[in-house]
């Protein structure tokens, strides 16, 4: 327990120390690179904006991620259970995933003009459902036939087999994908907030720092984003412990 808390904190402090030293040794001005000691004043000065906009970014990311979980799992089930659906959907999904999402921001903004919350959530979803769909699909399609047969031989329905075997067996892969998806969703939210700013979210705060030449503020936003990302990641880890804790082997 000590190691789980102290070691990461020490690592973060070492990182901040190296960063501070780098700026100090090179004698960089803060418009080239802000140093950690510039950040607390920036946070303090805009503390209300950080809270309001951080919340805007967070809730839209979480909603987008939630939709990605629902849609991604449904797609994964279709891919996992039907060979025809798998062959039909894979090229489409991969092609869609290959499109750089930044190019979609103006498209989405034009289609749903003015719907800033909706656009942001849509982008968070768009960028994060793919790993979930693929991992659930692979988890279900690689289920060994014997696992199905032990229940099928007793006349169990497909749904019972899914609920008792396929679903729990896929959970570790699902949570692995969810960790990736959680950080991706943040990228989606911030893409919209930065490329198509409507004065909402940490992305907009970053943009205003850029406009006003407030470099410590820009760096402070990046750190705030990293902080939110860490929180969401560990929220997923917490859920994983509860629902798929059995997959974790005890350290020996």
């Amino acid at each position: 327990m000590l190691g789980k808390i102290v070691v990461p904190i020490v690592a973060v402090l070492v990182f901040l120390g190296l960063w501070e030293a780098l700026v100090w040794v090179n004698n960089w001005p803060n418009y080239k690179m802000a140093s950690p000691s510039d950040l607390p004043p920036a946070f303090w000065k805009y503390k209300e904006l950080f809270l309001v906009m951080g919340w805007q970014t967070l809730w839209r990311t979480v909603v987008g991620l939630f939709i990605a979980v629902v849609v991604g799992t449904a797609l994964g089930m279709v891919i996992g259970f039907s060979r025809i659906a798998r062959e039909a959907l894979y090229p489409l999904l991969i092609g869609f995933n290959a499109i750089p999402k930044a190019t979609l921001v103006p498209v989405i903004s034009l289609i749903f003009i003015g719907q800033h919350d909706f656009n942001t959530i849509l982008m968070a979803f768009t960028i994060s459902f793919f790993p979930i769909a693929v991992s659930v699909g692979i988890g279900l399609s690689t289920l060994e036939p014997e696992y199905r047969d032990i229940l099928r031989a007793l006349g169990a329905t497909r749904f019972t087999i899914f609920r008792k075997i396929a679903l729990p067996k896929t959970l570790p892969e699902f949570f692995g994908a969810l960790k990736v998806a959680a950080t991706l969703a943040f990228i989606g939210t911030n893409l919209v907030e930065i490329v198509s700013p409507h004065g909402r979210g940490l992305g907009a705060l970053f943009k205003s720092g850029e406009t006003n030449g407030d470099y410590p503020l820009m760096f402070a936003v990046l750190i705030a984003l990293a902080f939110l990302g860490i929180i969401l990641y560990y929220a997923v880890v917490f859920l994983e412990r509860i629902f798929a804790g059995w997959a974790e082997r005890e350290a020996t």
């Binding site: 696992y147 031989a153 007793l154 006349g155 729990p168 067996k169 059995w246």
Partner: peptide, 19 residues
């Protein structure tokens, strides 16, 4: 004509559910 509840099966792989 189909699966029946009066059958038990065992395979080379014990297929125990890890959870």
């Amino acid at each position: 004509r189909g699966p029946r509840k009066t059958v038990g099966m065992a395979f080379q792989n014990p297929v125990l559910l890890e959870w």
